[in-house]
Design a protein around this nucleic acid. Structure first.
Lengths: 228, 228
DNA sequence: ATATGGTTTTTTGTATACCAGAGAATATAT
DNA sequence: ATATATTCTCTGGTATACAAAAAACCATAT
């Protein structure tokens, strides 16, 4: 056999519906859906026109997004970005707590020294940084825990849940006083994982996330309470 | 104000894609996908023809099913029911354990006497019944726990995971010796919930489900190992 | 001015036609 | 007979046309 350059097959299901799905998903997650003057309507035809394609692949992307609970397709009325109410968001945070708690449990005794170091670097930064930077690091910390579980399904489903919570979380996490508490929580979690205490790590993560749930329930009033 | 007849709104989004989605989903879940001679292929055109409709709504239903990981759409090749491998199923069971464990935790101190009775009736039946009946009761038991959490999201996501596991579970749960163990587990779980011991209930449920994970990993060899 | 009834517009739902890639079947050359 | 090239068919992908329902609009009668 001859030697030849080794090229990865770069065709990754290059279908429009896939690309559109990703584009729309990101756009939706970046929207400030709880702002009064955000238009929650998505127009199939307009999107298709803007992208210079037909409605069909756009619709298929929308069906997928609806299945992920990010939008709502009302027959012959329109497509709308879904604005979840307090109960739904709080419940999603509970599910997230369940997932991530199990991830922390599995991470114990299953991580290398380097991995723990990485987790620590991400989660235990000083409080001097800006809210945005902190928020970003916070997300990364929780993502990292899902990853350290080495359980792909746990990670995938955790990320899905997270995507649904994110808009509300971003809106609710404006309170700087929460930052300190969060960082000391993170340090404890890192410790528990490092010293291989699955039960303890699981408990810490669960309570940490459930604290967010309580916080959201308390401070939700700031947000627009109208539903679609 | 005058009295007038009170009519419930009967509009139930009667769209084809919705109906087809449900029909196909049920059909897929009832398939014995691990049997050698089951045809895993789904033909858009054939389905549309059989249902007497066009391809469009069928495609949209398929996109949804793909998003739920029940099928795989390979561009220009075909649509196939997804046969998960041991790692994927085992991981899904782990996620399920996480979800249901949290559900049991929440159920504690949040259930009525009647609800506990119902749970007991379902989960702690005698071993004399047939495998099929037992299997059915087993599913119901776990569904009931999700329900008693009073957390709709936990229930919904739990059910979604369950749907993905179900085919493998049905195939793996042929061992009658597991039945007895299962029933005593159930009794303990009911007790823990009844006596309001959230920590204990959560642990029991988690370990009970993780035992299924271990069991599946051990006995998977019986199943077809080829993947798509 | 307001309520009512019909019409027009807007928006998604569904059907159909055509396209392009993948693979099987066939033909051809050696 | 085998290896290679070609064609043919099958399948999902995309575009477009039309149907149907909801909402907006408007005219008219009271």
């Amino acid at each position: 056999m001859e030697t030849s350059i080794n090229l990865e097959p770069l065709r990754q299901t290059f279908t429009l519906k896939e690309r559109i799905y990703q584009v729309l998903r990101e756009a939706i997650l970046e929207m400030d859906i709880y702002s009064k003057d955000t238009d929650l309507r998505l127009d199939e035809r307009k999107i298709a026109q803007q992208l210079g394609i037909s409605r069909t692949p756009v619709r298929e992307a929308l069906v997928r997004l609806e299945n992920e609970n990010l939008i709502e397709i009302r027959a012959r009325i329109g497509v709308f970005v879904k604005k979840r109410n307090i109960e739904e968001v709080a419940e999603l945070v509970i599910v997230w707590a369940a997932i991530e708690s199990m991830a922390a449990r599995l991470a114990c005794g299953n991580v290398t020294e380097e991995e723990v170091k990485e987790l620590e670097m991400i989660g235990v930064k000083d409080t001097s940084m800006s809210q945005d930077v902190y928020s970003e690091a916070n997300i990364m910390f929780h993502r990292k825990i899902l990853e350290l579980s080495k359980c792909k399904m746990l990670k995938k489903i955790g990320e899905d849940i997270f995507a649904q919570i994110e808009p509300a979380r971003r809106h609710a996490m404006r309170d700087p006083s929460r930052t300190e508490q969060s960082i000391s929580d993170h340090a404890e979690i890192v410790n528990a994982i490092h010293s291989n205490q699955p039960e303890h790590a699981a408990n810490l993560v669960r309570e940490h996330t459930l604290r967010l749930e309580k916080y959201i329930r308390k401070t939700w009033k700031n947000l627009d309470t109208e539903n679609i």
